[in-house]
């Protein structure tokens, strides 16, 4: 297992400076975060960092030997690229260890203006073939790719052999696929886009209604997108995980995805074996309690695997969306 020492870096989420400190203290090797604007894909109210907060956070992390990765992983609209350029400069000034990008124009700009900063390719770029990944590496100097959650482990093994950069995979958290980086479902109902405004299902357009019998509906932009029985587990109010009726399914069904969370805890060893350099935990919108619990658990698990000890990851399921979990495409293409 000696060869595993350099793989399995834990990349952990932070929606606030307090969450970043929590992640670092819980054993994160790296923490990813974003600014309070449309330059990142978790542009939620009350979340994210000011430039000064980022600078202080980088100082805190570096003091404790952890890295900070800044997500600039949305797509500028025409004429709006200055926000991303300014964010890159602020990140560079704060001393972040890498910028996570999706847009080719943003990647090109950073490669030209900030050549000393590592570039990571966001899952939002949806680069899922060795050819696509090599293109980003050759043209923008990308050092790491975050793979879309649509690849099996054998496919990752093949890609790993054919690309010149590190691989990062999600191991826990949200399992919203929808051709990552290309989804416009939210835009369809709300006028705001995950990819350009950084917000999927903006909270300002989400409402919940509880009936006296305990049933609850969730609505987005005035449309009911799901309806839960009194004791049924709920999920995030996203269109891709909504439940819809159709003439042949009058009872309603999950047309795209079920509310379910990714949990690859049982595949960690396999992922390390194929050479996945870094493991990403999703959840910048989650609490410090979640961050502490998930990071501590995976820290112990990665260390155990490196030491040849079977890891204990039982307690994670309660934190998954809908309190249901899947290994998704990492296990099989037919995960539903």
């Amino acid at each position: 297992m000696g060869s595993m020492k350099n793989i399995g870096e834990l990349v952990c989420p932070a929606g606030t400076p307090a969450a970043l400190r929590t992640a670092v203290d819980a054993g994160a090797d790296a923490v990813y975060c974003g600014f309070r604007n449309a330059t990142n894909a978790r542009n939620f109210p009350g979340l994210n960092f000011s430039p000064d907060e980022l600078k202080a956070a980088v100082f805190y992390a570096h003091e404790k030997g952890a890295k900070v990765l800044l997500a600039l992983n949305t797509y500028p609209a025409a004429g709006g690229v200055d926000l991303w350029r300014d964010a890159a400069a602020l990140g560079a000034n704060a001393g972040v260890d890498a910028l996570i990008v999706a847009d080719i124009g943003v990647a090109h700009y950073i490669a030209e203006k900030h050549p000393d900063i590592r570039l990571h390719l966001s899952v939002q770029a949806a680069a899922s073939s060795a050819e696509a990944i090599r293109y980003y590496c050759e043209h923008f100097g990308v050092k790491r790719v975050v793979l879309p959650r649509i690849l099996t482990i054998p496919e990752i093994r093949t890609i790993r052999k054919e690309i010149p950069c590190e691989i990062e995979t999600f191991i826990f958290g949200n399992h919203g696929l929808m051709v990552e980086g290309r989804c416009t479902l939210t835009n369809y109902l709300t006028g705001q886009s995950t990819n350009m405004d950084g917000v999927c299902s903006p909270a300002s357009q989400v409402t919940y209604q509880q009936e006296k019998d305990g049933r609850m509906s969730s609505c987005l932009g005035g449309f009911t997108i799901d309806w839960f029985e009194p004791n049924e587990k709920a999920g995030y109010p996203t269109i891709c995980k909504g439940r819809y009726t159709a003439p042949h399914r009058p009872e309603g069904y999950y047309a795209f995805e079920e509310p379910i969370g990714l949990n690859l805890s049982n595949l960690l060893g396999d992922l390390m074996e194929v050479g996945v350099h870094a493991f990403k935990i999703e959840g910048r919108q989650r609490s410090k309690s979640y961050v502490r619990s998930v990071v501590e658990t995976f820290r112990q698990a990665v260390d155990d695997i490196r030491a040849g000890i079977p890891p204990d990851l039982e307690k994670l399921s309660v934190l998954t969306e809908g309190q249901k979990q899947t290994q998704g495409a990492f296990q099989t293409k037919k995960w539903r």
Binding site: Y208, M216, P230, K233, Q285, R286, L319
Partner: peptide, 14 residues
């Protein structure tokens, strides 16, 4: 975790 409590239906918001 508030989200987990929401998923389990133990926390309700309106």
């Amino acid at each position: 975790d508030g989200d987990a409590a929401f998923f389990s239906r133990d926390l309700y918001i309106s």
